[in-house]
Design a protein around this nucleic acid. Sequence first.
DNA 1: GTTGCGATGAAATAACGTAACATCTATATC
DNA 2: GATATAGATGTTACGTTATTTCATCGCAAC
Lengths: 160, 160
Amino acid sequence: MDTLAFDRHDHRSCIAAGVAQAEAQCASAGLQFTPVRRRVLEILLAGHRAMGAYDILEVLREEGLGSQPPVAYRALDFLVSNGFAHKIERLNAFVACSHMTEDHAPAFLICRACGSVAEAEIRLERGRLGEAAAQAGFTIERTVVEAEGLCPNCAEGRGA
Amino acid sequence: MDTLAFDRHDHRSCIAAGVAQAEAQCASAGLQFTPVRRRVLEILLAGHRAMGAYDILEVLREEGLGSQPPVAYRALDFLVSNGFAHKIERLNAFVACSHMTEDHAPAFLICRACGSVAEAEIRLERGRLGEAAAQAGFTIERTVVEAEGLCPNCAEGRGA
DNA sequence: GTTGCGATGAAATAACGTAACATCTATATC
DNA sequence: GATATAGATGTTACGTTATTTCATCGCAAC
């Protein structure tokens, strides 16, 4: 489990590492890591929290990188499709992926008090839902696994 | 696993049973099972699929039971809060609960081709995410577990 | 050099959801 | 029976999230 999001750490290094990783993967896959896409990933990595598409758009707008919703949504779609970011359905928001190197089904712990989001890796298809789906003849293509509650920091009397 | 949603069955009986169950639980819990709430549950049970709040509102409007969004959202909030319906975050839509008798954490199989939704019961906190959350000191209050893919009917060459 | 494809710009609109406030109704209390 | 209270409803207005559509641009292949 990645509890990074609940602890302090050096943002600058995680931004640089994330961008570098994405850049490398795009290069080897023949994908265009364009300025807008790069910048959106940087914004997500810098925020290190779930951000709405319109939050991101506001930053892009200030920087002259785009002003209309499709600019943000298209960049986010690219990042999500290629595993560099994830959408948190419960929040209608997006986070940078924290396990870019591995192909994985993400799961999230969402703190309802401070809004921080931690990413875990989970193999749902090996669990009970996966068994049940197989039994029913259902083919799982994508999973949404999100747990909402209180992170350790907020649980200390401040969030309950 | 409940694969009911993928098979043919008698809708009338599941509507009647669901409404009766909700009515009984409201009576014993001192909750008001008002006409709008009842009707929204009937609509969800009759649809036996995920429906948007505005789909439901349209029906209510035709029947003179309300015409503004809050009417639908309030009824849906009531049904969801009391376990008679669930929200599918992935679809921004709602389904009637198919296990009203038991207190449960729901999980869903969503067919991307036909839109049908099957509900399973899952105890995520006993699985790997639960362990990880416990280890990280995270308190889970609510879970969202949704798998998207192809149901057996649609997998037969029609959806792939 | 032109064809084709993916990316971008921009306008408009669709879809989803909530805040705020007035009103009503059933029940509890006096 | 009058009145206070809490929950439910009606209505207006607005806020947030997301997509459709069409024009344009830039680059790489042929």
